[in-house]
């Protein structure tokens, strides 16, 4: 970690009560894409909860990441409907073309590849999400186009 300048987080939207910890973490996750050491430290001070306790919460939920993600995030749905409709091939193709495994980010920091349990877009399986946009009935050909569009 070579954070040269540390950022001051503002949690004042929340009362410093434990029940708002997850919401505050979600704000950090949304704005930065991950939960940094620095964020945990400041959350710990604000909420009066030990850092190890906050880590226990962060590590439990799938939504929170410890590493800075790429500029674009591709999420491949691995729900049942997507699975039986071939999302495994989509994930394999993405891993092959991006040269990374699921959960990783390309070395140039361009793309992160994730899998998600279910997007609820089962009727349009297989589905993927690229930067919050849901694509349904994704084919390998379409995947190539989507990848080419990422800069």
């Amino acid at each position: 970690m070579n954070n040269t300048q540390s950022k001051k987080y503002d949690f004042s939207a929340y009362e410093p009560k434990r029940e708002y910890l997850v919401a505050a973490l979600q704000d950090v996750q949304d704005s930065e894409g991950y939960i940094s050491e620095d964020a945990v430290k400041q959350l710990s001070e604000y909420f009066g909860i030990s850092r190890s306790d906050i880590y226990s919460v962060v590590s439990f939920y799938a939504q929170f990441k410890f590493k800075k993600p790429g500029r674009h995030i591709i999420k491949v749905c691995k729900g049942t409907a997507c699975h039986v409709r071939g999302s495994g091939s989509l994930l394999a193709a993405l891993e092959e073309r991006l040269g990374i495994k699921e959960g990783e980010t390309t070395p140039d920091g361009l793309v992160s590849l994730e899998r998600v349990a279910c997007l609820g877009a089962c009727a349009l399986a297989p589905a993927i999400v690229v930067n919050e946009k849901v694509y349904g009935r994704v084919t390998l050909a379409q995947l190539q186009k989507i990848l080419e569009g990422l800069k």
């Binding site: 729900g79 049942t80 349990a117 279910c118 609820g120 877009a121 089962c122």
Partner: peptide, 8 residues
Amino acid sequence: DEGDPGAF
């Protein structure tokens, strides 16, 4: 928190 994969 509809978590069942395959349900929407």
